[in-house]
């Protein structure tokens, strides 16, 4: 055993996993999912939608279970329940006197509980652990295809509407006053959130997917004052964490989802402490020169 450990050089550490088909697939999917979620996380953190991200990602649970049971693509079920939860949150908020964060908490825990009950009741080969914690190392070919398609849809829409969505997050009133339909942008962003939650749960599972949707954006936000740079930094840090997380998971035999999110959190921590302008130990000369 000790001989084996000694023989691992950094090059081997990187290349050995690539000899396995399942690892090549896992790394490819994780990097892609990381990019998609990283890109969207900028809008989530700037719009203040962290709780909404948490809600939608939990609410897709019953959709995944029902879709598996019926033999449909899991993403379809997840998407229907993701968007449904958002619509329900809006409806309950409008029709009652309850505050929004309470409504969000109510709706997503209700959906999540329904999902857990369904898993225990529906006889199928659904693995609860796989849904809750993700399993990029065991991802099937059809799941890879779904993830690819959804990822490209999300990236495509975000590239087209990135400036409108940025304006919507920054100053929705101005957007409306120049004739932009902010209602459509609102639901577009929620739809993208549902789709990203669907791809995110592939790698880190339902419970941790919210981390994919906020941590990269928060990290990037501490590093720059420009929106375009923020999106690039978020995508880089997110896909890097995903790839590194998968490697660590492979070599140390630990849960992949936890490994990915932990790397992300560590990168955030480094930015929190040492970001040149906004870190705890910031570079004073940078600020004084401003």
């Amino acid at each position: 055993m000790s001989e084996l450990l000694i023989s691992i050089t950094p090059i081997n550490w990187l290349l050995d996993p690539l000899t396995h088909e399942f690892m090549r697939r896992a790394l490819m999917v994780s990097a892609l999912v990381g990019s998609v979620c990283g890109l969207l996380s900028c809008y989530m953190t700037l719009k203040g939608w962290a709780l909404m991200g948490d809600a939608v990602s939990h609410a897709v649970m019953p959709g995944v279970v029902v879709a598996y049971a019926l033999g449909l693509p899991f993403s379809l079920g997840a998407f229907v329940f993701g968007v449904g939860s958002v619509a329900l949150i809006g409806f309950v908020k409008q029709k009652s006197r309850i505050k929004e964060d309470t409504v969000i908490g109510l709706v997503f825990t209700g959906f999540f509980a329904l999902g857990i009950v369904l898993v225990s009741k529906i006889k199928s080969n659904i693995d609860l652990m796989q849904i809750l914690f993700g399993s990029p190392l065991g991802i099937s070919r059809s799941d890879v295809n779904q993830t690819l398609i959804i990822s490209f849809i999300v990236i495509f829409i975000l590239l087209i509407f990135r400036k409108d969505l940025m304006l919507y997050c920054f100053d929705a009133k101005h957007a409306r006053s120049i004739g932009i339909n902010t209602g459509i942008l609102h639901y577009l962003l929620l739809t993208l959130l549902s789709l990203s939650a669907v791809v995110g749960l592939q790698t880190v599972g339902i419970i941790l997917v919210v981390a994919m949707l906020i941590t990269p954006g928060a990290t990037a936000y501490l590093l720059t004052d420009r929106f375009d740079r923020m999106t690039i930094l978020a995508v880089i840090s997110s896909s890097f964490s995903s790839i590194l997380g998968v490697y660590i998971s492979y070599w140390s035999d630990i849960e992949t989802g936890g490994s990915i999110v932990l790397v992300q959190t560590l990168i955030f921590l480094i930015a929190f402490l040492f970001a040149p302008r906004y870190g705890i130990f910031k570079n004073q000369s940078l600020i004084n020169n401003d």
């Binding site: 700037l46 940025m166 920054f170 101005h174 120049i178 932009i180 720059t224 004052d225 420009r226 929106f227």
Partner: peptide, 16 residues
């Protein structure tokens, strides 16, 4: 605290 520059904000006036 939104990450936009003065130039970016004024350019938003042209979006329409």
């Amino acid at each position: 605290s939104f990450p936009v520059s003065v130039w970016d904000v004024v350019m938003m006036g042209r979006y329409g």
